[in-house]
């Protein structure tokens, strides 16, 4: 599996893609593989404030619930509605179509603490 070079990654297995002042956030290929078949995604409503490192939603498989932690602080500006009807997208296209939320950054400095694709892969390897 390849991890896009232009994304930043967290130890909680989220990816972040910065487009202007807005971050697109998703879970990594590794995360969906560990979870198994994903059956439900619980996401915040738009306009919700989120804080880096705090949980803002959850992903469910048949027999497990995993919290999703915000990789950056800011305000949720958009939620991926398609996941409500097709949570299986998270298993199929975790790095693109199955993005979770878009967050308007309140502290752009936080981006610097994310891992690069190479660092993330060696984190997985270790």
């Amino acid at each position: 599996m390849t991890y896009p070079e232009n994304y930043g990654y967290t130890k909680e297995h989220e990816w972040v893609s910065v487009e202007g002042g807005v971050c697109v956030v998703g879970i990594t290929f590794h995360a969906q593989k560990e979870l198994g078949d994903i059956v439900y995604v619980d996401l915040p409503r738009p306009n919700t404030a989120v804080e880096a490192g705090k949980t803002f939603g959850s992903v469910e498989s048949v027999k497990a619930v995993s919290d999703i932690f915000a990789p950056v602080s800011g305000e949720v500006v958009e939620v991926n509605q398609a996941l409500a009807d097709a949570p299986e997208m998270l298993n199929e296209k975790p790095h693109d179509a199955a993005w979770l939320v878009k967050i308007k950054l309140s502290n752009p400095e936080e981006i610097k603490s994310l891992m690069s694709a190479a660092d993330y892969q060696s984190y997985l390897g270790g």
Binding site: D37, V39, Y40, V62, P87
Partner: peptide, 8 residues
């Protein structure tokens, strides 16, 4: 039994 579809 397909528990995944049942939950989705």
């Amino acid at each position: 039994v397909d528990e995944v579809t049942a939950a989705r």
